[in-house]
């Protein structure tokens, strides 16, 4: 593959979770509730149809951001990206709740140059200098996709769970590391920090390879952006929602795609 081909492949991989036939993007932590005095976790990051099996492409870690219990940034350690998955470790040096997120935000542009199709992906800042303004058949869209998970060492807290104010997000009503089989959990969906009503949400349990159906739980956020899920069994779950609006950062972009994917662990009673 040439460098251009590689870049294009990466762009396609990054764009996939935002397309209609989305593959699932996910982060899978080794544990979510920890009691050790000096705890570590390891996390797998991948894009696949099957939960949680890495059999398609790795989730790239360029935009990995870990927020510690005091709100400060935490570095991932031992990062590696292989054929099917990325992995990294997190040293949980401070007790409390950590937010581990891969946020891909940017613009996609298609146009024609000398009768040939051109594609571009990049940041809002680079758009003006890298995409010709007078390009023919120019089509631009913006995307903000967040893939995340939460882990807690010791006592849970909420500092890392506050909204960034950008894109589609979930904030807890029920703490995301306090989930038990048979209990109801409630979360609030936000777009740009404001409650997001009427969004379709799907919640799919782990282990798709070993059953015949997706077994997805479907729900819709209410007028306050709230969703509730009663966990049918212990295990890992993937929660996802996506939508689009016209709140773009550049005039050339007609629409903005928003997506959110969250991995949760539900424990047995």
């Amino acid at each position: 593959m040439t460098t251009a081909h590689k870049l294009f492949a990466i762009a396609v991989a990054l764009a996939l979770p935002l397309s209609a036939q989305a593959h699932k993007t996910w982060l899978l932590p080794s544990e979510t509730v920890l009691s050790a005095e000096d705890p570590w976790i390891t996390v797998d990051a991948a894009v696949s149809n099957d939960l949680f099996y890495f059999n398609h492409v790795p989730l790239r870690l360029e935009s990995l951001a870990i927020t510690g219990p005091d709100g400060s940034a935490v570095n991932a350690e031992n990062t590696a990206t292989g054929k099917y998955r990325s992995t990294f470790d997190v040293h949980l040096t401070t007790p409390g709740t950590y937010r581990i997120a891969v946020v891909n935000a940017g613009l996609f542009a298609n146009w024609e140059e000398d009768g040939k199709p051109k594609r571009w992906r990049g940041s809002v800042e680079k758009f003006a200098s890298e995409v010709p303004k007078d390009a023919s058949k120019l089509s631009v869209s913006q995307s903000v996709g967040r893939t995340e998970t939460f882990v807690t060492a010791g006592r849970p807290n909420d500092t890392a769970l506050t909204s960034s104010g950008v894109g589609l997000e979930l904030v807890p009503v029920t703490h995301p590391n306090d989930l038990f089989a048979g209990e109801k959990a409630t979360f609030k969906l936000l777009i740009d920090g404001k409650p997001a009503p009427g969004l379709d949400v799907e919640v799919i349990p782990d282990g798709i390879r070993y059953r015949q159906q997706q077994n997805e739980i479907k729900t819709t956020s209410d007028k306050d952006g709230l969703i509730s899920v009663t966990w049918p069994a212990a295990g890992r779950y993937w929660l996802h929602s996506d939508t689009e609006d016209d709140k773009t950062s550049v005039a050339a972009a007609s629409k903005r795609r928003l997506s959110y994917s969250l991995t949760l662990e539900v424990l047995p009673q």
Binding site: S35, A36, G154, R155, F180
Partner: peptide, 22 residues
């Protein structure tokens, strides 16, 4: 080598949730 036995205290899931983590 893996640290004191507190590493596995969270496996007392209900106790850890209701009290241990506090």
């Amino acid at each position: 080598k893996e640290g004191a036995g507190s590493k596995w205290l969270a496996d007392l899931r209900q106790w850890w949730r209701r009290s241990g983590r506090e």
